[in-house]
Computed example of a mutant assay.
Amino acid sequence: MPIHKINIVPTWSFRDDSGRELDPQLFSLLRHIETDGKLTTAAKAVGISYRHAWNQLNKWADFFGTPLAELQKGRGARLTELGAKLVWAEKRVIARLEPQLDNITSDLNLELSRLLEGTRPRLRLQASHGYAVELLPRFAQAFELDLQYRNAREALASLGREQCDLAGFHLPVSMLSEEMKSLPTRLLKPRAHRIIRFIIRQQGLMIAAGNPLGIEGLADLCREDIRFINREKDSGTRLLLDEMLQRSGRGSSDVLPSAGTEFTHSAIAAHVAAGMADVGFGVQAAAAQFGLDFIPLAKEQYLMACHQRTLEQPACQLLLQQLRGDAFREAVSGLPGYDARLSGEVLAPDELFAEMEN
């Protein structure tokens, strides 16, 4: 029997006073115009004729009272300011809602699998949202992966209460401070727990393409003309940034000229890409996704903690096989700034910290 999976994606609903509703297909057309720069190519990608695509643009230009795209002879098509804002708004909504929707999706797929396929080995993973973590359900072969997005503090606390089997957390490859390692050292016991290496990812500054403001590093975050979009408190990425700022004598990110906070790397990148902030801090893959420039500042280990006995569970053994396999590592290699060469390696907590201090 084939494996059935549910995917949940947000959709838009615009309605005017006369009851006309915006066709969700328009967003797909606008996205491809932005990417391809040609209406013919965009129409083909969406699966509609050129004439229908042109009619769609005219129809919704009338709906909004202004064009969404412009055709230029010999230069293809480009989005107007409104068209670009609509595409950005969709990207931002998806980036903001993605962790919550993925949590719901995981719950629904588990229930669907139980109904259609019976009980299979189950592994409960709590981890912060990220590009590599998103890949894991695809590699959950012959077992159920119950993936719930939580920050490191929540995930490790859940592991201590035995509310999950694996807890994700991250530590910088270098410059590990006592404060940064206090959470895992306080909650993980050398004899009872084990660490599974997941991936290493590149963190840094995400800035507009071409770097129009001449941003070069952390010092520029303190400039009065720079608007910085921060991550939420207790996120591992924000803790890493605060550690770097403190080491450079600049305090914490709380004092930076702020454009607000967001909850995922992609949401940070969407904010910068839309011009609502000048710079954000996050992973290189997010910058690449939104066509931003990137200034690398630190490499970070994404790790998973578990009880030693969990390693013997069939589902955990299957996961380790996938993490060590070529297919998973090739998938991760397609993410800019990600490295999975050590994925699936198991070590004790004290071995990890001793290694990082050398």
Rank of each mutant, 00 (worst) to 15 (best):
V9S: 13
W12S: 08
L22S: 06
L29K: 09
R31P: 05
D36V: 05
G37D: 11
G37H: 03
K38S: 13
K38E: 11
T40G: 04
G47E: 10
G65F: 05
T66C: 06
P67W: 01
K73Q: 13
G83D: 06
L97T: 11
L97V: 06
P99L: 01
L108V: 10
L112S: 02
A127P: 01
L135R: 15
D146Q: 14
N151D: 15
V173E: 14
S177A: 01
E178F: 00
R186T: 14
L187Y: 06
L187M: 09
Q203P: 00
Q203Y: 09
I207R: 01
G210R: 03
L218I: 02
C222R: 11
E232V: 05
D234W: 00
D234H: 04
T237Q: 02
Q246F: 00
G251F: 00
S253R: 00
S253A: 07
L256H: 01
A269K: 12
G282I: 10
V283G: 14
A285N: 07
I295A: 07
P296M: 03
Q301A: 09
R309I: 07
T310R: 13
C316G: 03
Q322K: 11
R324S: 15
G325N: 14
F328H: 05
D339I: 02
A340T: 04
S343G: 12
